[in-house]
Design a protein around this nucleic acid. Structure first.
Lengths: 224, 224
DNA sequence: CGGAATCTTGAGGCCCGTCAATAACGGTGG
DNA sequence: CCACCGTTATTGACGGGCCTCAAGATTCCG
C-alpha cells in the first residue's frame, strides 16, 4: 500500500494524533516526501540535525558507532516510526546514523518548521513529551537487558515481542540475521546457534529463510 | 552546604531554569522536602508514579531489575538531578527503583501538581523536552556502550568522564566498587582487576580507598 | 542456471562472571 | 589512642558464554 500524499505521513505518526484538523493540514504542508533505495543514507552522525524523519513505508535502521569501530543498532524504524527529535535541542548535531534497509518512503519536516509548530500547538508538545517518555522507557530496558541478560534471553524476548507485534505465533523475521545481530549486540553466528538450540528444546520451529513458529511461548519466556 | 527551603530545590534543577520569578515561586509552594538515610527507598518498580523527585543533597541510585534477578544501575542522581518523569505519561507505574546510597535530601512534586504546571507554562514544557532529549542521548550511548564495548573500555571512559566532571585529574570515586559495578554492568572483582591493569600500564595511579589519579588521559582514551 | 549474498556449523581462544579466601579499611566504643 | 568488627577490596582458580576465523551449505535473484 503506497501513500501518495504528505497528509498520509502525518496521519501515520503518533505525535500527530489527536490534533485538530486545521493543525494537521498545516503540518501536512510542511512535510516533504522522499523515496530512498536499500542502503541509502538518511543522515550520519556528526552532520547537522536539520529535520524530523518519519518512515511511511519500508525499514530504516538507526545505528551508533563506537570508537572501536563496531556498530550498534538502536532501533528499527518501520511505518509510522520517526526519529530526529534532536531537532528539539540546542544541539544541532546527529549522534546516530540512519540507513535504509529496504526501499523506503520517508517524510521530513525541517527543524525550524517543527520548532514553530511546537510553540503553536501545546497539544503537539505534550504528544512529543509522551513519545520521548516511551523512548526513554524502551532505552532503559534496552540498556538493562544489554548489561544483564544473555544473548539467549535477549533473543527469546525479541521473538516474543515480534510475535506479539505481528499478532501471530508464526512469522518471518523482519531483519536479516546480520542486522538482527547488530540490534541484539551479538553476532549472526551466535543467533543461528541459539535458534537451533531453541528448536532442539521444542520452543520454536524454523523453516525457510528466517521463518519462525513459536511453539512454546511460556518456555521462551523462561529462557535465561 | 544544606538547603533549607523548597525554593532551593527549585533553583537547583535545570528544568526550572529560565522561568519567570512568579512561576518559580508558584512551583516552590508545590514542593515537599524529605530527608532520607542511606539505604532508604524512594520508590520501587511497580508502584504508582505519583511524583517527580529532585535530589538536593546526597546520592540516589536508579536501578532496574531483570527477570533473572540481576540489578542494573541506570543512573546516579546527585545534587540537581531528578527522576520520575513517568508522571508525564498516561502510564502511572514506576519501572525503576530509586534507593539512597548516602543520607540525602530529596524534594518532590506531586503528579497532578506537575501536570498542571506543564499546562500553564509552555517554557517549562520546552525545558522538560530538552531534559528528556538529553536523557535519550545518554541512554543511547549507554545502550551502545553496553553492547559493543569491553569492561576495560567502559571503565576507562567512566574515569575520564568523572575526572572531567570533577575538573581534576585526581579524584575519589563517588561510588563503592560494588555500585560502580552495577552501573558499568560488571562485577566488583573485574573492576579491581582492570584498575590494576591500568596502573601497571602507567595510565593511572591508585592510593587509599578509591582514590585515583589519571596519569595518561590520552592512553586511557585508547583503551579497548 | 550461475553467482553473490546469506546462513550454518565447527574449532579455538579470550574475556569475564562466579566462588572462595585473604587483606585492607573505617567506624565504634572502651 | 587503640582494639575490634563489619564492610569493602583484592587476588587466585575455574568454567562458561560468546566472538572470531574459516569452510561449506543454502537461498535468492538476475
Amino acid at each position: 500500500m503506497h501513500i501518495h500524499d504528505a497528509e498520509g505521513c502525518v496521519r501515520l505518526v503518533p505525535i500527530f494524533k489527536n490534533l485538530d484538523a486545521g493543525t494537521i493540514t498545516a503540518i501536512a504542508q510542511l512535510v516533504h516526501e522522499h523515496n530512498v533505495a536499500a542502503g541509502d543514507t538518511l543522515f550520519l552522525a556528526g552532520t547537522d540535525a536539520d529535520a524530523l524523519y518519519i518512515v511511511a513505508r519500508g525499514q530504516v535502521k538507526v545505528t551508533q558507532d563506537t570508537v572501536s569501530g563496531r556498530e550498534q543498532m538502536l532501533r528499527l524504524l518501520q511505518a509510522g516510526d520517526f526519529d530526529g527529535e534532536a531537532v528539539l535541542f540546542t544541539k544541532t548535531e546527529h549522534n546516530n546514523n540512519a540507513i535504509a534497509l529496504t526501499a523506503s518512503q520517508v517524510c521530513t519536516i525541517s527543524r525550524s518548521d517543527f520548532q514553530q509548530l511546537l510553540r503553536q500547538s501545546p497539544d503537539l508538545a505534550l504528544n512529543v513529551l509522551n513519545a520521548l517518555g516511551q523512548r526513554v522507557v524502551t532505552l532503559e530496558n534496552q540498556a538493562t537487558a544489554a548489561n544483564t541478560a544473555s544473548v539467549a534471553e535477549r533473543l527469546a524476548n525479541y521473538l516474543l515481542e515480534t510475535s506479539a507485534a505481528m499478532g501471530d505465533a508464526e512469522f518471518t523475521l523482519p531483519l536479516r540475521k546480520k542486522d538482527l545481530a547488530l540490534y541484539l549486540g551479538t553476532s549472526a553466528e551466535t543467533i543461528s546457534r541459539r535458534l537451533t538450540t531453541f528448536e532442539d528444546d521444542g520452543l520454536i520451529e524454523q523453516s525457510g529463510r528466517g521463518h519462525i513458529k513459536i511453539v512454546d511461548a511460556d518456555g521462551l519466556g523462561l529462557v535465561i
